[in-house]
Every structure is written in structure tokens, then in C-alpha cells.
Simulated scan of single mutants.
Amino acid sequence: MSGARQLSREFGTGPLSRAAALVHTLLVVELLLLATTLPALLPLALLDRDASNLPLVAVCLVPVGPALSAALYALRHQRLDLTDLRPSAVFWRGYRANLAGVLRIWVPALLWLTVIAVSLAHRAAAGVPPWWTALLVLVAAGVLLGTANALVIVTLFHFRTRDVLRLAAHFLARAPGVAVGTAVLLLAAAGVTAVGSDAVLALLGSVLALALLRIAEPMIISIRKEFTA
């Protein structure tokens, strides 16, 4: 009996089983990501690539924030025991728990990026000088990187929204490796969209979420050590 119990404990915890558990979790999370974002992303695919549609693009992207947060939560809390996998339940738990907090960060970020994108799209007609264009690009980059940090923080920790934003901005300077890694990830995502399509990027959502978690690990460790009891 003791041998059977030992075999039961070992099954599902070996390297191959852990790899299989990760693949299973990624697939389930990907399906849930698609389920929670597809109704809003389908209209996005029908919009013309015109600057006048930028506000509609922002509206279509609103559901992406909570869904990505839920994916981060599910992947962070994944069980690597093949006999005890519940990625779907963990995804929905994270979605419900973090919905309000994520929207308080995600929606203002989309508004800022939309204003910047519209300004850049009409820079010639408005006579915007080159230095102002460069400044807007830098601000947009900062908003993107700060939002990525904030999304990870609000998903994994319980802070007030203003504290989440402060920590996100703080770690842009304190953890430049995280910022550079996130920038590379965003550029890769943009490249996938340019070479392939929005659909290809959507199909890689869970992989991108896992990559963001891995990149943000130094920030996560620092916050847990220094800002939580």
C-alpha cells in the first residue's frame, strides 16, 4: 500500500508531467482568453485602418485588459501536478476578483493612448513639430510599459489603484531589465500583427501572458519582499 501511495504522489509531478500540465494550462487559458475577448475583437477586424476609427478601436480593446489579467492570474497560480489541474476555475476566480481594479487602470490607459494616437495621426495637418512628435512617442511608450507593470501588479497583489500606479512607475526606473524585456515583448507582438494578423496575435495570447510573467518576475519578487507583510 505504501508503494502505491508513493507511486500516486510521484505521478503527475515529474518533468514530463509538469510540461504536459503547462501545455494543458496554456491551451485552456488561450481558449478562455478567446472566449472573453472575441465578441469585442470581431468588430475590430471589420474596422478600416483609418485614424477616425481609433476611438472605436479603444472601445473594442476594453475587454482585453480584464481577460489578460485573468490569464496572468491563472498562469501564476497554475498547478504543475497533472492530476490536479483546474486552470478554468482559477481563470474565472482571477477575472472576478480583479475586474474592477483592472478596469480602473486599463480604461484610462486606453484613453491616453487613443489621444496620443489621434494626435500623431493628424500631426501633419495640425503642424505638429518633430520634437513634439518624438515627445508623444516617448509618452506613449511610457504609458504602455507602465500599464504592463500595473496590470501585473493589480493582478497579483492587493493595493489601492494609486499605489499600483506608483509602483508601476517606480519599477520602470528601478527594474530597467523588466522594462526592456516588456518593450521587446510588445515589439514582438507588433511584429506578429504586422507580418501576420490580429488573429495570429490573439492565438498567442496565453504564451504572451506567460512571457510577461517571466519578464516581470524580478519586479514581483521585489514587491513581495518589500511592500507586502
Rank of each mutant, 00 (worst) to 15 (best):
A150E: 06
T114R: 03
G12E: 02
G146I: 01
V57Y: 13
A74Y: 15
E30Y: 03
P129G: 05
A100F: 09
D198S: 11
R174G: 02
L38W: 15
T161Y: 09
L204K: 04
T182Y: 01
P63S: 11
A199Y: 00
P108C: 04
L54D: 00
L41I: 07
A169Q: 04
L187D: 05
L113E: 04
V184S: 08
V59N: 07
V128D: 01
V139N: 00
D50C: 02
A71L: 14
H24W: 15
A74W: 15
L26I: 09
L82E: 02
V180G: 02
V184K: 05
I221P: 01
V118Q: 01
F171S: 02
A216W: 15
V59H: 08
F91D: 07
H170E: 12
E217R: 15
V29E: 08
R86P: 03
S17T: 10
L138A: 01
N53F: 13
R5T: 11
H77G: 10
R104P: 00
L144K: 00
L34P: 03
G127M: 10
L68I: 14
P218D: 13
N53C: 03
T13M: 11
V139W: 01
G94Q: 08
H122N: 12
S69C: 13
A51L: 06
G181V: 10
A19H: 14
A126F: 10
A97E: 13
L167H: 14
L61F: 12
T147Y: 04
I220F: 08
D163P: 05
V184F: 10
L212T: 08
R76F: 13
A35Y: 10
L201I: 07
L80A: 05
R123C: 01
L138M: 03
V137Y: 00
A179C: 09
V139P: 00
S197Q: 05
A150C: 05
V195W: 11
Q6S: 12
P87A: 06
Y95N: 06
L208I: 15
A89L: 12
T114D: 02
P87Y: 14
P55N: 08
G177F: 09
G196T: 08
R93I: 11
L44I: 07
S52E: 12
L210R: 13
S69M: 11
V62N: 06
I116Y: 00
L61N: 04
L113H: 02
A169K: 03
A173H: 11
N98K: 15
